[in-house]
Structure formats: C-alpha cells, structure tokens
C-alpha cells in the first residue's frame, strides 16, 4: 500500500520530469536518431553522426570557446561593478539615490536596439567594433541592471550587524568583505552569475552589431544551422545550449568551494 503522501510526491516528480527533463532528453535522443518522431521514437536507427559534424566544424568550436569566454568575462565584470554599486545603494543614504537607482535600471527600460546603434558609432570611433572586448562591453548593457538589482536585494537582506560583529572583533572593512560578506552573500552571487551568464549566452543582435560577424558566438551560428535541414545537428546544437549554463554552474560552484576553503585556511 502506497501512502497518500508518497503518491503525491511521485506525481510531482513525474510532472517535473515530463515538463523539464523529458524534453531535453528527447532532444538529445533526436540528435542521435533524427528519425525519432512521436510515436515511433525508438524504431529508427541511431548514431553519433550529428555530434561528429558539430565537433569537426571549426566554426562551432571557435564559437563555443568565444561564448564561454565572453560569458565568463561578463559575469566577472558584472560582479566587480555590481557589488560596490549594490553595497552603496543598500548601505548608504544620500541625495539623489532614487535617481541614481533608476539611471542604473535604464538600460533595460529603453529598447536595447536604440542604445546599440548609438554605441556602435562610439565603438567604431574608439576601435572596439569587431573585437571581443567590444562584445563583452556591450553584453554588460542587458546584464548589469539585473546584477545590481540581485546584489542589492542580497545586501538588503543581510543585516548590517554582521559587519558590526566583525568590526568589534577587530577586523577591518576590507577583510570583513572577503571573509564574511561574500560567504554570506553566496545565494545572491550564485543567482547573479547564472542570470548574467544565460543572458549573455542568449545575445544575438548585440553580438552581431558590435562583433560585426568577426566575433562569432553560438547564437550567431545557431540560426544558420537552424535553417539547415539536418534536424539531428540542430538537436545536438540545442543540447549544447541547454548544457552550457549547467556546466557553467558546476564550474562556478567549484570555484565557490575553492574560495570558501581559501577563506577558512588563510
């Protein structure tokens, strides 16, 4: 006899599986067996041809590396800029604070294309078009406002007494930041990093305008592939898109572990 609570649990797990995991698995299966169409999912033949195509295409490998590098750099710069900004907004009261807060939200309130066109001209002048640096900078636009928001609410939730406790134990502000605040802010830092990485990963227009086709990222070559008739390759490509944020999260989690153990053994 299965208890009612267990039944409920099974129901929710099943629903979760059907809605979130099954589609990804199905997509992976499609990349192996392009003929797999409902209801004959497992009747066709299967092979690794699509994955061979993907990994032998220099463009894809190049785009994959670019995407990861740009994503990581954007996350890092977001962190460096958003944390001080959020700290200032959360901990200090000053004249014009609401104004500054709304200015910081501007980039996501104004259509991105309008800004990108203007930025394009500026970047041509200073020679940042068609470069990784230019693309990284332009990716800050749709990400930084969110990063500041996420980090600010993190600081808001964190009572100032933690900092005071550290201070009365004789620890200066700078050290307190690294040994106490960052570990306590990890939940916010995690969501900030994942959010920023996924947004960066999804940029098409900004990358193509500023990168000028010279800086190739996954979204840029995703479209041409999507139009190709090879549905197995498209499926494989999509799987990469799904896996990339997960891999990023795993690596990021590893870095966090390293950081924490460094804090503790320092």
């Amino acid at each position: 006899m299965i208890a009612k609570r267990d039944l409920q649990k099974i129901f929710w797990l099943l629903l979760l599986f059907l809605l979130f995991i099954a589609p990804a698995l199905l997509m992976f299966w499609r990349s192996l067996s392009p003929g797999a169409v409902w209801p004959e999912l497992f009747s066709g033949e299967w092979n690794f041809r699509a994955w061979q195509v993907i990994f032998s295409d220099g463009n894809i490998i190049n785009a994959l590396i670019n995407t990861v590098l740009i994503g990581a750099a954007v996350v890092l710069i977001n962190f460096l800029l958003a944390v001080p900004a959020a700290y200032g907004l959360a901990r200090f009261n000053f004249k014009g604070k609401p104004l500054i807060e709304s200015v910081m939200m501007m980039p996501i309130l104004i259509p991105v294309l309008a800004i990108a066109m203007g930025m394009h001209i500026t970047m041509i002048r200073i020679g940042l078009t068609d470069t990784m640096t230019g693309v990284i900078l332009i990716h800050l636009m749709p990400t930084l406002p969110y990063a500041i928001r996420v980090m600010k609410s993190g600081f808001d939730r964190l009572s100032i007494t933690w900092e005071e406790q550290s201070a009365v134990l004789g620890v200066g502000r700078f050290r307190t930041f690294f040994t106490t605040l960052i570990p306590l802010l990890l939940p916010s830092i995690r969501s900030m990093a994942v959010l920023v990485f996924v947004i960066s990963l999804s940029q098409y227009v900004l990358t193509s305008i500023i990168g000028g086709g010279q800086v190739s990222t996954l979204p840029l070559i995703y479209y041409p592939y999507f139009n190709s008739a090879d549905s197995a390759v498209v499926a494989g490509f999509s799987v990469i898109f799904v896996l990339l944020p997960m891999l990023f999260f795993l690596v990021f989690e590893g870095l966090i572990r390293l950081y924490l153990s460094a804090v503790r053994s320092a």
Binding site: T161, W162, E164, Q165, A167, V168, L169, G170, G172, R173
Partner: peptide, 15 residues
C-alpha cells in the same frame, strides 16, 4: 575606529 578599540561587543543574536 571600532576595529581598533580594545572592546568587543556581544549582540542580541549570537551572529
């Protein structure tokens, strides 16, 4: 400054 005083404070919460 607080971190330079020979004083330690214990708060309401153990923190």
């Amino acid at each position: 400054k607080a971190e330079k005083r020979p004083v330690v404070m214990m708060f309401q919460d153990p923190l």
